[in-house]
Nucleic acid binder design. Structure first.
Lengths: 342, 342
DNA sequence: GTTTAGCACTCTAGCTTGAAGAGTGCTAAA
DNA sequence: TTTAGCACTCTTCAAGCTAGAGTGCTAAAC
């Protein structure tokens, strides 16, 4: 790929900037008039022809203006894009919003509201992956007897996650026996990552506690569920926002995307593969056919210094990248701050 | 409203039946040819003119066929509609589906899958209201000490609902003191409906336990949250199905509906006001402007013989009412059966 | 060598027109 | 009371046309 000289870069930036706001193919005249008053349309035309040949721009048809190609956007976000600060109003809104959120102690609530804030400010659709239970470590396992036949198992992780389940007691067990089992289990399991509680380890426990096998079985089931619980931990915000984008005025395209929104599995997969820091995936880089005309900007968030989930903004490839990146950074910071206090 | 003679009823039924499948205005000729071979188009025409005058049919424009009015649909579901049994295939699918669900013990999971099944079979969008915590009665309140500073409050309802929260202990309390508070609270509160735990009652408790006020405060907060937790307990299934309906080929209409789907509050309100048994609300009967061209068929479901939630199917007013009613009845039965076993 | 003006050419979006088709309402006859 | 016939209305669709935007190329200007 030939390096672009300064002028080509400026013209490319102009085309992309303009296209992002107008959603209309950008002609040489527009660039000359609005962004490069010192150059004539004809000159711009030549440069744009070059940019097209190099793969940064495309033409919907002869005698239309140019629109950025996927490669063009990629170059833009990598090298051309200027950081865009939030407006005072937006800053204020966010500060206020997260001040409100401080009152909430449930992590899920915070996460869901974060999805709302993201879509409110960006006007795109937001995706938020809730904290992954299986990336947490087991802190405590508690057994609370309810009556002679039933007990409540409570699983507490180091990330403040609580999950519980009622189990049937196989036989009447004395308080002593129960607490014996509990302390043994806690000894063995505390501090272990839930994801990595290997089958082997569980099998070992199983044999060691073979006389209490039924009880154990049920408790282990809870763990099992927890570690495989990837499903449906994704929250959406502003799904209807995509309908405001002119590229989705065609019902068929919306249909596929909307159907994708209902597939929690696939959504969470997209977010799970997110790197630390802000990442941008444009069009086919998402490796999901429904998203070929969309871009996804994501960031991870932390709980006790470990990345446990991710937030993201989904829009057309013609997205306000600069703004979205700023917003995502800001919000993930606020979120991290909030979660640290839990 | 003048009563309709037998022939008018049959013609109205023919028009509605046809319109439901074709989504096209139905002409007199079509009715004559397909449903009333013994009458000529001209006769039908006269009858249809009458039906229009009576308010059961409307004409999009002169020289188009007729389409049912809201009043027409209302008459249809009240008096004209034949019950439609499920196909063998659908029966099989449902049986299989709910056999699978038996393995799940979490009520929320069952509810969410029910939304899926509803939309799968009907090809419309489904709405499901999760069991309302505040309609349950308090069974037990448990305090599990975690360490010197923190404890876990566990709230268990008679409907098998569990909710918990970590609270800070104001001062080091002995096990004895804690269990004293607990048994006192349980004595006072057990069996009470969460919704009806009145402010007065809570205030009384507050004064009686004034020395342990901080602790109590936090626990009461949990109750408070529970009773006001109406928000976001609605699950959607097959939201993208509405896009298959020709009445929603216009993006603008979809946008409003989709935005409504994101307003958990309003959705749950719609479902909360559902009567016992199957209820059908057509168009403006929903009293929600976004739903003026939609119908909603709902039914409540039971947990331990008390209605605690509702399931519903949302489609265009031109909906296959007969089929949807059958499906809703069937599924709410299956759901009730399943929940009884919990 | 680079930039620009000029011009012919291309393509789309939007408008008009006309014909076909579906359906109605009315009238008069069966 | 029902039906056939007919004039009339309205929509839909394709075809044809125009205006406008934008291009690429060439030749002249800097």
């Amino acid at each position: 790929m030939t390096a672009l000289n300064e002028r080509k870069q400026q013209i490319l930036r102009a085309v992309i900037t303009d296209y992002i706001v107008t959603a209309e193919p950008v002609g040489s005249r527009t660039v000359s008039r609005r962004y490069h008053t010192d150059l004539s349309a004809a000159t711009i035309r030549n440069e744009m022809a070059d940019l097209e040949e190099l793969g940064y721009l495309t033409q919907p048809h002869t005698s239309a203006g140019r629109i950025p190609s996927q490669q063009g956007y990629r170059f833009y976000v990598d090298s051309l894009m200027d950081a865009m600060p939030l407006s005072a109003q937006e800053e204020k809104y966010l500060s206020h919003f997260y001040l409100q959120l401080q009152k909430m102690k449930e992590i899920d609530q915070i996460i869901q509201h974060t999805a709302k804030a993201l879509s409110m400010i960006t006007k795109y659709t937001s995706l938020v992956l809730g904290p992954q239970l299986r990336r947490s470590r087991l802190k405590q396992l508690r057994l609370v007897p309810l009556n002679e036949k039933r007990a409540l198992v409570v699983l507490i992780t180091d990330t403040g996650f609580i999950k519980n389940k009622i189990i049937e007691l196989p036989q009447a067990l004395s308080e002593n026996e129960l607490s014996g089992i509990m302390s043994y289990l806690n000894e063995q399991l505390a501090g272990k990552s839930i994801e990595l509680l290997s089958a082997a380890q569980l099998r070992k426990l199983r044999s060691e506690l073979c006389n209490k096998i039924d009880l154990l079985e049920q408790m282990l089931l809870l763990l099992d569920e927890s570690s495989s619980e990837s499903e449906s931990r994704v929250f959406l915000g502003g799904a209807s926002n995509i309908l405001n984008q002119p590229e989705f005025k065609d019902i068929e395209k919306v249909k596929h995307l909307l159907a994708l929104f209902e597939e929690g599995e696939r959504l969470s997969f997209m977010l799970e593969t997110t790197m630390a820091g802000v990442s941008i995936r444009i069009g086919t880089e998402n490796r999901i056919s429904e998203m070929n005309e969309c871009s996804l900007v994501t960031a991870t968030y932390m709980l006790h210094d470990r990345p446990v989930g991710a937030i993201g903004v989904l829009g057309p490839t013609r997205m306000e990248y600069a703004k979205v990146v700023t917003v995502i950074e800001k919000i993930s910071n606020k979120l991290n701050g909030l979660l640290d206090m839990l």
